[in-house]
Structure formats: C-alpha cells, structure tokens
Amino acid sequence: MTTSTRTVAIFGGVYNNYLSLEATLEDARDAGADAIYCLGDMGGFGPYPDRVFPYLRDTSDVFVMQGNYDQSIGNRLEDCGCGYTDPRDNHFAQISYDYTFEHTSETHKDWLAELPEKFERQWAGLNVRMAHGSPRTINEFLWESTSPDPFLDRMLDECGADLLFVTHTGIPWRRELPSGRWVVNVGAIGRPPNDGTTKVDYFLAHIDDDVEIERRRVDYDHERLAGEVREVGLPEEFAETLETGWWTTCTGSMPAKERAQGPY
C-alpha cells in the first residue's frame, strides 16, 4: 500500500522464536512500518529465550505490551497463567514455562514485569485499542468461532474502541462488525496457525483517510528453529509443530470448530 500516509505493524505471540521475530520485523520495516506493536507473550515453545530481547528492547520503532506469559515470568510466578483446562495442555505448558523461566535472565524478567498492559491510539479519527487477550482480561481467548458479534460490540463499547487488536489464541482472524467497527486477532509469530503451513502471521494497518488492515504471512528458517528446539531438549512435539504447521499441543483450549481444522 504505497498510497497510505503511514503504515504500522502489529504482532503477538513470539514464543521464544527469535528467527520469526527477526523475519517479521524485517518484513514490517520493508513494508514501510514506522511503528511496530508487539502484543505480548515473548516466551513459550521455542529455545533460547534471551535471544528475542535484543530485537525488542531499546528499539525506537518497537512498542511492547505485556502478555500473560510475560506477567508470569516477570513476576516470578510458578506457571504461565495461560488458562488451559486440559491436563495434557498443562503438562506441555509447564515444560515450556519452566524452561523459559530458567533461561530468561533477571534483567529481562524485570523488564517484562514493567511492560504496559494496553496501548490506545487514534488512527484516522478511529479509537484504536490493543490488548493481549481482551481489553478486560489478559488471558481471555477471543477465538473466531466463539466471539459473537454482539459480544464483541459490547466489548468495544466498554473500552470505547472502534478498532481492537488482540492476540493470545495463536490463530489470526479479523471481522467487521455490523456496527462498522473492527476486531483483529493478529495470531502469533511464534508458531504457525494450525493450517499445515510453516509461515507465521502478523498484520499491517495502512492509515490514510481510513484504516486498511492487511494480513501478512512470513517465511523464516523454521527448520533451524526446530533443530534448536531438539538441541536444548524441549519436547519433540514443539519441533514437529514448527515443521508441519499443525499444532501438537495446547489444542484442548481450542473451540471444536478451530480444532476440527487440524489433525490433533
């Protein structure tokens, strides 16, 4: 979109994937983004947690929000607060959390603890709100098939927004509500969206007289990351997801409709 006055990028769910983070930032900057918003969850399934921070800290164009994972790591809590109910999901989430906690340096934990929980902006006269899970709860899942229009309208009324960006679920979607307002779940850049591809997702907002939303799919060296997952001794299931594009863990929290799209 070369005609827009300005372009901004919005992504979430890094999950220790410093390679997809690097690729996403490069793609966003190449597309002309002058501001890049990260909606949280730096830690998760991937290796070497400390490698994501140089890309996010002390960069003038990147604005970072706290996700539930960051809140837990930053405040030295004992689990990720992901909101899973399935024991199998919790088993893998705990392995992932314990590894991330152990390998995140104290200075980065302190930084995570101090991150803001929301961003509010005005673009083209629209009130824009960014949140991790939802504007009201950091770990609320806003899935496409379980977020009805009237409910989203109420949520936008309550926070006074015309355009809402969230992450947390890991699967992207966007919807124009009958009221003309928009909700965008930006998905995650840390693992593919359970669609059998290895690409990850983020969104651009092209701002002119109006705001136009564009979904971007990013390639990165997923084979290298999967190799490093194995190298540090994280579960094979985490590597498999990166290589196949299908979620092997944390599927229990998915609604039936989203889960039916994948083999697990």
């Binding site: 379980t146 009805p148 009237p150 409910f151 109420r154 949520m155």
Partner: peptide
Amino acid sequence: WARDYGVKE
C-alpha cells in the same frame, strides 16, 4: 435479550 446485551456463549 442476550443478543441485545452481548452474551458470549
């Protein structure tokens, strides 16, 4: 009533 209010599920 639930539609007017904005029930989630």
